[in-house]
Design a protein around this nucleic acid. Structure first.
Length: 1011
RNA sequence: GCUCGAGUGGUGGAAUUGGUAGACACGUUGGACUUAAAAUCCAAUGGACAUUAGUCCGUACGGGUUCAAGUCCCGUCUCGAGUACCA
């Protein structure tokens, strides 16, 4: 029986059988298990691990995974010990939202989703080392997330050594000298104290002070509060003023939150970008996010007050152009300095600003508004009074929340001055500022500025700073836009903090008692008193005697204390997973020293660009922290990073189908227009039919046949859509239609009024090009996402064409980094290639396996070796799309050559194996080899097979190619020229003229005759 | 507004240092095989004129450099991504 089965497989390309067999083989033999030591050089290929959503994988997900898998397999062929792990970023909001709605525990849904993901990933034939799988939501994993949090808590940032240090060193400094000489990144408003003061402080006071220095700290911060989600969001979780997930409104609110002092690392995060091979756009956006600006801080004294206003400016050289100052409405000095006369106006303005949401303020940057406080500041040099205004164009959150306004040099200051009739002194030589502010700082010199007169920008900057420092009213300063990252979330489904509170001060739980596992709760919503969901837990208190989590009722604040109710944000778990993969089952350490010393860092990281300012920035921060603590050997975790493009949903029209919508109720209502057709039924619905069906059936009004045909053609997709079910009160839920035609419409709004639908239909018809009734070309579409109902699921494709076809096809679609629309139609090309490949090895009777042991022809060797060369270059350059065409060319050529030789077909199977591993394994086995092809040496390119004695030269006249001429390669330039000039076609082209010049580029490049 | 990226057939895309523009694939058209369909194979396929060679035009648009430009330079337009009162 086994023989018959085997023979069966060898007869035709039975991808289902082949793929299943080899997937089982790999799993059984743990083919891709990586060892933490090896004589081979190491190579670490990492994918951004997925969040296991309920929708499962769509065809866009695997793109990056396929690319990294090809690279990982290639590196194995090249003799590397490859680490290629996969896992799940399994904490997150959707599971929690689902839990809120259904009461289903997020762990249950998450486990179910992971199961689906695993099945789908397995079916694509990835060479993951599943023995190293991690899940951020499993206690064995988040034990170490909690552990890192504790390490961060126990650290401060020493600016003198420019690294994180243990708080013990800080305490030592305090005990010796107080905090006067401590150069730390810490909170702004820290009182100074002496060593004696420090010793005299109470324990709680000491903890309070230390908290202001720790790298993670509790603070009352203004946060982005999303009432609908009941949680705080990070800046990068907000898009256009609403939450990224769900699109709910977000407001500003003060809360006590854990924060990470990422700002301490601003400069190093910036510098590190120069040491990694990451895409420039991604580096740019991180650079932009960190937002370094170099300038000076300037201190202005307030007249008749004992107050000072500190501002940050990048143009201290324009200090003599200051004609007013502007404070953010929220600035703390506003209430102190506002005069009685201005009080009413200022308060009214503050109230009006507070009412405007952040979103309104952002959307409306044109309206100029502000109010005069009545107070004046004193110019540091001229001692002239400067009116102090407030205005909402100054942001409380950036710099000091105050600016020195130089209307002649800044457009916003200029507009403000114009609007309120404030003088606009000109300090630029020979520049007209009557219309707008002068912005080109490099091209002029300073005037009307006392000691700065006549100086160009750079010199003026230096001198201004020098003079300010002499006065004690300023200094050179670098400012960063990067804010500390809020680390608390009011959610259930996240890592609990290993923290309990004594006298309101946070205490860390010892490492040996970790993990602190998530407690069970009745409800996943915030409590009635507004506490986070963990406030619902009954067993959620820390007993310091037994070192266990106990019931809340036992809290006595002497031995049993309340635990932290917040959980960690989504990026906590994803900031350390790449290191944990190196030693994922270590129970005593986050990873062993041997493991991290061996694997070092990620060599290739592939994932989406949407993580540029989230995950990728935070992970770099944690890595640098761990580097400072001597835990990791590299301060950047990934050497090379590639952003794979998105696969977008695509239109149905690429099939060449006709689209029609109908709500006609009878045949009489049916009006077949010229280009579209409608289909009469009792209910409204949407139908796609092909041109031929249209012609054959519609014209004959044989509608049953259409229905059958559509059913058959679209099996695997939902086909004829019954939108009647979603009709209520003239509102049509268009989502099924969107899903059906695989096109995304009208801003993805979930529901559409029928009127609007008709309008859409009109617009949509207009955007469709009808070319002589042949083609219908669709419009652009969006990212595949569940909410847009334009998802193409890989299961159906695997079923119909197999994983190898899908892998090849996704690579063939275009450059990896580029976004591209999904179009199932083209997959037959990739599938056809595999069939042709199979046939090369199966030229025996009735398609039986048969290769010859004969020496292949010269041409076949040439085909093979140029393919080796090209494919190797392409993989190294991550140009996977072109290597797929190279394979196609090779197979086409070998087919034409009737090449059947083992000496060509064996190396060919290895070449193909990273791309289409299943078929390659099967062919390898049929070629008589034992075991997996995956670690066989990559074929060696040999130049000698490509050496030629002659080459076809393109011959052009005045740059236009006219004919080709075969010439020996060993001819000299003169000989080539002579040969060309002697050619009859040359004479024909010249028609008696004498050429002015003949350009010969040897080695078969080109010959150009100028005449 | 600012920053970055991109515009090539009906479609996705090739052309890696300036050297045959449109590889490869899809789609389309015609043909072979078949009762038929599927599958497979063969041929054609940037446009226009000529249908035997051949000629002209073509890489968003307008200039320029060069023997030679999709590629380099200057200007313009369009699209996409990111960011947004950042002082």
């Amino acid at each position: 029986m086994a023989n018959i089965e085997k023979k069966d497989i060898s007869m035709h390309y039975d991808f289902k059988e082949i793929e299943k067999n080899w997937q089982d083989f790999w799993a059984k033999n743990q083919t891709f298990k990586a060892e933490n030591n090896s004589d081979k050089p190491k190579y670490y290929v990492l994918d951004m691990f997925p969040y296991p959503s309920g929708a499962g994988l769509h065809v866009g997900h695997p793109l990056g995974y396929i690319a990294s898998d090809i690279y990982a397999r290639y590196k194995r062929h090249k003799g590397f010990n490859v680490l290629h792990p996969q896992g799940y970023d399994s904490f997150g909001l959707p599971a929690e939202q689902y839990a809120i709605q259904t009461g289903q525990h997020p762990a249950v849904t998450t486990a179910a989703n992971i199961k689906t993901y695993r099945r789908q990933l397995d079916q694509l034939g990835f060479s993951f080392d599943w023995s190293r799988e991690v899940r951020t939501s499993s206690p064995e994993y988040y034990k170490w997330t909690q552990w890192i949090f504790i390490q961060i808590f126990n650290s401060w940032y020493n600016k003198d050594t420019d690294k994180a240090e243990d708080v013990e060193t800080l305490i030592a400094k305090f005990s010796a000298d107080g905090n006067a000489n401590v150069n730390a990144v810490c909170d702004d408003d820290i009182e100074s104290f002496s060593a004696a003061d420090w010793k005299a402080f109470s324990d709680v006071k000491k903890q309070e002070i230390l908290l202001q220095y720790r790298l993670t700290y509790l603070a009352d911060t203004e946060v982005n509060w999303c009432p609908a989600l009941g949680t705080v969001l990070a800046n990068d979780e907000i898009v256009n003023g609403v939450s990224e997930r769900g699109g709910h409104p977000v407001i500003r609110k003060k809360m006590t939150q854990w924060s990470m002092r990422i700002s301490a690392y601003a400069q190093r995060l910036l510098d590190g970008l120069n040491t990694v091979d990451w895409p420039q756009p991604l580096k740019d956006s991180q650079t932009n996010w960190i937002g370094r600006s170099q300038g000076a801080s300037v201190v202005f004294n307030v007249k008749d007050h004992d107050e000072k206003i500190e501002v940050f400016t990048i143009r201290p050289d324009t200090i003599f152009g200051v004609s007013f100052m502007t404070l953010a409405p929220e600035h703390e000095l506003v209430s102190k300095i506002t005069t009685e006369a201005q009080k009413a106006e200022v308060e009214a303005y503050i109230e009006a600003t507070a009412k405007r949401s952040e979103r309104d303020r952002m959307a409306d940057v044109k309206t100029i508004s502000g109010a005069f406080t009545g107070a004046y500041a004193e110019h540091p040099f001229t001692k002239e009074p400067i009116p102090i205004w407030i205005g909402d164009y100054v942001l409380a959150g950036y710099g000091t929340g105050a600016v020195m306004s130089v209307p002649c040099g800044d457009q916003r200051d200029y507009d403000f001055a114009k609007h309120f009739n404030i003088p606009i002194p000109n300090i630029f030589e020979g520049v007209d500022i009557s219309e707008e502010a002068y912005a080109d700082k490099d091209k002029t010199v300073i005037a009307n500025s006392d000691f700065l007169n006549g100086l160009p920008y750079k010199k003026a900057m230096k001198l201004a700073i020098y003079e300010l420092e002499k006065l004690g009213q300023g200094e050179g300063k670098i400012n960063y836009r990067l804010r500390d990252a809020v680390f608390s979330r009011q959610r259930y489904w996240g890592e609990p903090f290993p923290v309990y509170y004594v006298d309101g001060m946070p205490q860390m739980i010892e490492k040996e008692f970790l993990p602190i596992a998530l407690p069970e709760v009745e409800k996943y919503l915030p409590t009635e008193t507004g506490e986070p969901p963990l406030g619902n837990a009954e067993v959620w208190a820390w007993d310091t005697v037994t070192n266990t989590v106990v019931n809340n009722s036992e809290i006595n604040n002497t031995t049993v204390f309340p635990l932290e109710l917040n959980t960690m944000p989504g990026w906590a778990g994803s900031s350390q997973y790449f290191n944990r993969y190196m030693d994922p089952h270590n129970e005593n350490e986050i990873f062993s020293k041997e493991a991290i010393d061996y694997w070092q860092d990620v060599d290739l990281y592939i994932g989406g660009s949407e993580h540029a300012t989230g995950h990728l920035l935070y992970s770099r921060f944690w890595q640098k922290f761990m580097f400072d603590k001597g835990l990791v050997p590299k301060d950047e975790f990934a050497k090379k990073l590639i952003n794979q493009g998105m696969i977008t949903g695509t239109s149905a029209f690429v099939y060449g189908f006709w689209v029609a919508f109908s709500h006609f109720n009878s045949l009489e209502d049916l009006k077949v227009e010229d280009k579209t057709m409608a289909y009469p039924v009792e209910r409204p619905f949407l139908l796609l039919v092909s041109k031929s069906v249209y012609e054959n059936c519609v014209k004959s009004e044989d509608f049953t046949e259409i229905e059958d045909w559509v059913e058959k053609k679209f099996s695997g997709y939902s086909n004829i859509i019954d939108i009647d079910k979603s009709v209520s009160q003239n509102t049509y839920d268009i989502r099924p239609i969107v899903q059906h035609v695989n096109v995304s419409l009208v801003n993805s709004s979930d529901e559409l009024n029928f009127e609007d639908f008709l309008k859409w239909r009109q617009e949509y018809s207009n955007s469709v090009l009808f070319q002589e009734g042949k083609y219908i070309v669709g419009r652009e579409v969006e990212k595949m996402s569940k909410s847009k109902y334009n998802v193409v699921n890989p299961d159906a494709i695997c079923e119909e064409y197999g994983a190898d076809s899908l892998r090849l096809y996704e690579m063939f679609l275009g450059p990896l980094e580029q976004s591209k629309p999904w179009n199932t139609a083209g997959i037959t090309g990739a599938h056809g290639f595999l069939k042709k490949l199979w046939r090369l090895y199966h030229l025996g009777a009735e398609g039986a396996f048969a290769v010859s042991e004969d020496e292949p022809s010269k041409d076949s060797f040439k085909t093979l070796h140029k393919t080796i060369k090209k494919v190797e270059e392409d993989i190294e350059n991550f140009s996977f799309n072109t290597s797929v065409s190279t394979f196609m060319i090779a197979v086409n050529e070998l087919g034409a050559q009737k090449c059947n030789s083992r000496n060509v077909l064996e190396p060919l199977a290895i070449l193909v194996s990273p791309y289409a591993p299943h078929i390659a394994e099967e062919l390898w086995k049929q070629l008589g080899h034992e075991g997996s092809i995956s670690t066989v040496d990559f074929p060696k390119f040999e130049e000698k097979y490509l050496v030629e004695s002659s080459k076809e030269y393109p011959v052009s006249f005045n740059g236009k190619m006219r004919f080709k001429l075969e010439l020996p390669l060993d001819l000299s330039k003169d000989e080539i020229e002579a040969a060309v000039m002697a050619h009859e076609k040359t004479a024909q082209q010249l028609q008696g003229r004498t050429p002015k010049k003949v350009i010969v580029v040897p080695a078969g490049k080109i010959i150009n005759i100028v005449g």
